[in-house]
Write a protein that binds this DNA or RNA. Structure first.
Lengths: 145, 145
DNA sequence: TATTTTAATTATAATTATTACATAATTAAA
DNA sequence: TTTAATTATGTAATAATTATAATTAAAATA
């Protein structure tokens, strides 16, 4: 908890109770890539007074400092992701899960290059397909029949 | 026009007037990556009776057949793109333009591979930075001063 | 050709995600 | 402790998209 408080202060944000709670939620559900709604629903269970606006305000403040990133992979909703180490995302077309994929091997080109005169500052990439779990279930079905 | 009609039929879609018009618009504005709203606004000028729902229905039908792709690069809106040849997108953080980038050099890994047991079917990637035009204007400003 | 069936389009209303805004509460500074 | 600044809250507004049901057009059948 002290760690998270420091994280906020290091980013020039006052460590208010609600900000700490939002950050804590993101930290504890790093693999969920939650939506604003999911965060609000979870927090409001223990904090009945927190408002949706606060969640959005907080997330937008986090976005500005680069503490979190917003992913629009599914196309219908914004998923928030605590920025820890560089990684990419995998969207399973069967179960809809977004999975972190470490990029030890350079899946996308290095940053700050130039293509056709355009200066590249960020490279965003994600994969779409069938995740390991769904792959396994498909195989099991085949085995049974 | 016959070409577009055939394109619809080849994708198992009846070539109705409104579908043809939406497709024609996408074909003529291939570099704009328009939103549903932009398409509706443009078409309704000559077709006062066309409805927003029809534009959405049509775009969703196109999406299902893979005729178009939906890009959520900016994070606030869905941009539609006629699928012609494989390419990536570049979002300029200064002017907001989305520019097509041909991928002759393999910027992202080849398709249908496996990472951690997840089968990759599609690779989505986009770049963010400053486009060639904005780069040039920045340089000109520097020169003047 | 007339009739039936199916598919596509339309208008309206509903839903959802997000933001604007005014007010209240909290915190920091003087 | 008073004042100023920041942050949180509730309500309402906005914008994008979808659901629904009615209408129209097209295709199939008799």
């Amino acid at each position: 908890m002290e760690r998270l408080k420091k994280l906020l202060e290091d980013n020039g944000l006052k460590p208010t109770y609600q900000r700490l709670k939002v950050l804590e939620y993101l930290d504890r559900h790093i693999d969920t890539h939650p939506t604003a709604e999911m965060i609000y629903d979870a927090l409001s269970r223990n904090m009945p007074t927190i408002s949706v606006t606060t969640v959005y305000n907080t997330l937008n403040a986090f976005l500005q400092t680069g503490l979190v990133s917003a992913e629009t992979i599914t196309g219908t909703e914004v998923r928030y992701d605590l920025v820890t180490h560089p990684h990419h995302h995998f969207l399973c077309r069967m179960c809809g899960t977004i999975i972190d994929v470490d990029v030890t091997c350079p899946v996308v080109e290095a940053k700050t290059k130039v293509i056709n005169g355009h200066t590249i500052e960020e490279v965003h990439g994600y994969f779409k397909g069938v995740c390991e779990k769904c792959n396994r279930e498909k195989t099991e079905c085949t085995k049974k029949s």
